[in-house]
């Protein structure tokens, strides 16, 4: 467990209520409003995506929305920066393989 329960300077952290979300279909718990990446790290998940060309794993690097290494598919939407996207109850989060496809295919149909 990577959550800090008692910090010597900051004391306890004011976190949102505990909510359930799914990673690749598997139920997990996190705190509402914290970045998805924080909830995943607390749950021991480091691999957020596999790259398009070499199928290499990638995770968090900058944690402030700058580098886009941590993107995942969130509720069907690819390329979501999980280090800045707040966690909400019932979110469907998927490991992103490659670049991701558009959610609404075939606009003319």
């Amino acid at each position: 467990m990577n959550r800090i329960s008692e910090h010597p300077v900051l004391g306890t952290f004011a976190k949102g209520r505990s909510v359930v979300f799914r990673l690749d279909g598997r139920a997990m718990e996190g705190c509402e409003g914290e970045p998805i990446a924080a909830a995943l790290r607390a749950a021991g998940v480091l691999v957020h995506r596999q790259t398009a060309r070499r199928n290499e794993p990638r995770g968090v690097f900058c944690a402030i929305g700058r580098c886009t290494d941590c993107v995942m598919v969130v509720d069907g939407r690819p390329n979501v920066r999980t280090c800045v996207e707040p966690l909400r109850e019932g979110m469907q989060i998927q490991t992103q393989y490659g670049l991701g496809t558009l959610r609404h295919e075939g606009a003319g149909s």
Partner: peptide, 12 residues
């Protein structure tokens, strides 16, 4: 800085 963000802002 990412380590700092995780620990000091998010408590992880």
């Amino acid at each position: 800085g990412a380590a700092q963000t995780m620990a000091n802002l998010h408590g992880i």
